[in-house]
Design a binder for these strands. Structure first.
Length: 540
RNA sequence: GCGCUCGUAGCUCAGUUGGAUAGAGCACCACCCUCCUAAGGUGGGGGUCGGACGUUCGAAUCGUCUCGAGCGCGCCA
């Protein structure tokens, strides 16, 4: 049993003796910043005193009087009624053996029955992935990794809008570029895609088809669209792989629309639709929306919303307990429409959740970098990765709350010093690996019984928090808190390294205990970095 | 006008769902290698938590109002 559960059970037991029924899961243990306040502190007495007509301090005194002291060296009442708990050192030292035994599974949550579908990136197949997609990819994948590590069953899904107006524009733009490649005059439409990446695709199309597509026929146009989508998607998948993001499922809008599935869905929504000026509206205001939304235009074609609803219902039909859509923050108006539409079918509002990812500004010093070097309109994911690397990019994007605007500091991401958080964490891991290698002949003492320095104890306590951190971050989908955990772990590791000499030929027993702590810390650092999709190098 | 996301140190951001003296990193200043990676560590200055009122033992956190920023409010996606 881990220490926190062990303590919580003791507290619950004590509360029972006083006549209060409290669940162990409702007991909140804190880690006081000041050592004088113990290894753990809790405010249970303040929270529950009123229920039985006690003053908080009196209840706290009662708890101290009756609590089982096994494993506890000291427990005292402080301030308005906090309980400060001091552990016996053996209790803390036992963490080391626990971590080493579980190794790559330390921190992994128990298997949950919840099946979660996370849809993210879902970029239109009309151009390269850019900065915004990169942040969505980093956050989306980190959320998935968090969920998986915490024990949830997850599906990573990418939705491809291959049927709307956007792909028609892309097809027309590609056609113009192709004609240019064939030495003919043609202009990319004003509202088309002017990026130079389409020139590359046009060359590829020409290599495949020669000049067979020159004639301006419907059939040829459809070929430009299908080939364009295929090639764009190939690039997107290649860039995602480079970024270490892999999807379980790619879903196509064209598939969603097949076999009258959208028509059927529309039919099912009949009780919630009405006609206005030739267009069909969905009564989303009956639920959470502030405005009804058109689903069929007056020309008979669907708005984007209709196939989107069909698609979400199809996802739910596959048996997920929760859908998560990771979207750019400018899509926030979309959330209530979709949620309302699902509620019309009887789903609870919580069946779907949205992660709104705020914009990224790329900064070089005080100057914002807006344009891509290659003449494109924005900086692409590929460029970013080539310049600063996958690890730094993923870490920086995942290390901030999705809802907050992010300034990505180019120079900082490249810096090889403690200023750069990624470097700082990876360096801590490499240092631990080096110590373990150098001290390999000592062997490791899993009991870690010689650890008692402040730097050692602080590190032990932090290692102990890892499983709870994972559990909590997964529930709230906040990978940036894992990054915060990593930074603290790195700081404690470096402090330990400086203050405690690990390999000491004159004191083998102490060395064995400290090497065990190194091993445990190395495991936790590696597991934590892995949650963010960042490598843990063994040497630097 | 309505809605969403925000407003915390000079800068970038946390703040464990209402707890003790509001934290971290960067930047700045001063220290620490005869010894495992100084690619590191220790210490220091720096705050009207945008503002006001309210809720209670207790508010950066919850409520109302207000000021400011960004985004959204289409038979676009």
């Amino acid at each position: 049993m881990d220490i926190e559960t062990f303590l919580k059970n003791k507290i619950v037991g004590a509360l029972q003796k006083v006549g209060l029924d409290v669940l162990a899961s409702d007991v909140i243990l804190e880690h006081p910043k000041e050592e004088t306040r113990g290894d753990y502190a809790t405010s249970v007495a303040l929270q529950h005193a009123k229920k039985i007509g006690f003053k908080p301090r009196d209840l706290a005194e009662q708890i101290v009087a009756v609590i089982d002291r096994d494993g506890i060296s000291k427990i005292e009442v402080a301030g308005p009624g906090f309980l400060n708990i001091f552990l016996k050192s053996e209790a803390l030292q036992s963490i080391v053996g626990d971590v080493i035994a579980k190794n790559e599974n330390y921190g992994r949550g128990s298997k949950k029955a919840t099946k979660v579908n996370v849809e993210f990136v879902s970029a239109n197949p009309t151009g390269d992935l850019h900065l915004g997609h990169a942040r969505c990819a980093a956050i989306g994948d980190a959320i998935c990794r968090l969920y998986e590590f915490a024990g949830y069953e997850i599906t990573r899904e990418f939705y491809i809008n291959d049927a709307g107006a956007q792909v028609n524009k892309m097809g027309a733009s590609l056609q113009a570029r192709y004609l240019n490649e064939c030495g003919l005059n043609a202009e990319v439409p004003a509202d088309g895609y002017h990026g130079l990446d389409l020139v590359d695709l046009a060359k590829q199309v020409k290599d495949l088809y020669g000049d067979k597509l020159i004639a301006d026929t419907k059939e040829n146009f459809l070929t430009f669209i299908s080939e364009g989508i295929r090639l764009e998607l190939e690039k997107i998948k290649r860039d995602l792989a480079l970024f270490r993001v892999h999807f379980d499922l790619y879903s196509y809008e064209s598939e969603v629309r097949k076999d009258g599935k959208v028509e059927k869905t529309l039919e099912e929504y009949k009780p919630f639709t009405y006609l206005d000026q030739g267009a069909t509206y969905l009564k989303t205001t009956a639920f959470l929306d502030d405005k009804d939304r058109p689903v069929v235009k007056s020309d008979g074609s669907y708005t984007y919303l209709m196939p989107d609803i069909t698609y979400h219902l199809q996802k739910l039909g596959r048996g997920y307990d929760l859908l998560v859509d990771v979207l750019g923050a400018d899509h926030h108006g979309y959330t209530n429409r979709m949620r309302s539409a699902l509620m019309m079918k009887g789903y609870p509002a919580e069946i779907i959740d949205f992660e709104l990812v705020q914009v990224v500004r790329l900064m070089k010093g005080d100057v914002e970098v807006k344009m891509s070097k290659r003449g494109g309109t924005t900086v692409t994911l590929r460029e970013l990765v080539e310049e600063v690397g996958v690890d730094a990019t993923r870490y920086f994007f995942a290390a901030r709350a999705a809802t907050s605007h992010l300034d990505f500091d180019y120079d900082l991401a490249l810096e090889q010093s403690s200023s750069n958080p990624v470097f700082y964490a990876q360096y801590a891991h490499a240092r631990l690996c080096k110590l373990l290698e150098t001290g390999a002949d000592f062997g490791i003492d899993i009991s870690a019984r010689n650890l008692r320095e402040t730097a050692e104890i602080n590190l032990l306590k932090h290692l102990q928090e890892f499983p709870n951190t994972i559990e909590g971050c997964a529930k709230t989908r906040e990978p940036y808190k894992v990054a915060a955990y990593i930074q603290k772990l790195a700081a404690l590791t470096h402090a330990f390294y400086t203050e405690c000499r690990v390999i000491d030929r004159d004191n083998a027993e102490l060395s064995q205990s400290r090497l065990a702590l190194c091993k445990a810390s190395q495991i936790v650092m590696r597991n934590a970095l892995n949650v963010l999709g960042v490598n843990a190098p063994e040497q630097m």
